[in-house]
Computed example of a mutant assay.
Amino acid sequence: MATSCNLADRQCRPCEGGIAPLDAAMASEMLHTLAGWALNGERLEKTFAFRNHYEAMAFVNAIAWLSHRENHHPELTVDYKDVRVRYWTHAIDGLSENDFICAAKLEKLLTI
């Protein structure tokens, strides 16, 4: 099984469809490497809580930077002090390894 550290060290690969989404067993296995993340249908999500709006927005900007580098973009919901991040791979309408790689990179970013 891949660890979150291993996932965070990987790079997203372009996905333009033509592959199957991860099956439930593989998604569940990868989910266990990510503290606080949950599967919500075919989506991988987590809500991050911050002390204030400034910190929440700084995190959103960090997500934008990471998303640009990986060319894999989440859905974001921003509240006053909370940011919900939802990943799925649009081209396959389900989860791919890219979703878990980006989630692991966000977790690593918060430990720096």
Rank of each mutant, 00 (worst) to 15 (best):
E75P: 00
H72N: 06
K81L: 07
F59H: 06
E55V: 03
G18P: 10
F100N: 02
C5D: 15
E75L: 11
M57D: 01
N98R: 05
W88P: 04
W37E: 03
A35C: 01
L22E: 09
D9F: 04
A56R: 06
A35Y: 06
A49W: 08
L95G: 03
L31Y: 00
H73A: 03
A2Y: 15
D82G: 03
A8N: 08
N98T: 00
I63N: 03
A35Q: 10
N40T: 01
C102P: 02
G41P: 14
R13M: 10
D82L: 14
A35L: 01
T33E: 12
A25Y: 01
L76K: 05
F59Q: 07
P14Q: 13
H32E: 00
L31H: 05
C5M: 13
A49K: 15
T111H: 13
D93Q: 14
L76G: 06
A104E: 04
R10P: 02
N61D: 09
V85F: 04
W88C: 12
A20K: 04
H72E: 10
Y54I: 14
L110H: 10
K46A: 08
A38N: 14
E55G: 05
P74V: 07
D82T: 15
S67N: 05
I92M: 08
N98Y: 01
A56Y: 06
A20F: 05
A35F: 01
M57P: 02
V78P: 02
T89Y: 12
M30Q: 05
L106Q: 01
C12N: 11
H68L: 09
G94I: 01
F59V: 03
R51Y: 01
A103R: 09
H73Y: 14
L76C: 10
E75T: 12
A49Q: 10
F50L: 04
P21Q: 08
Q11R: 13
E42M: 11
W37S: 04
M26H: 13
P74W: 07
N98V: 06
R69H: 13
G41I: 07
E55M: 14
A27T: 02
A103V: 07
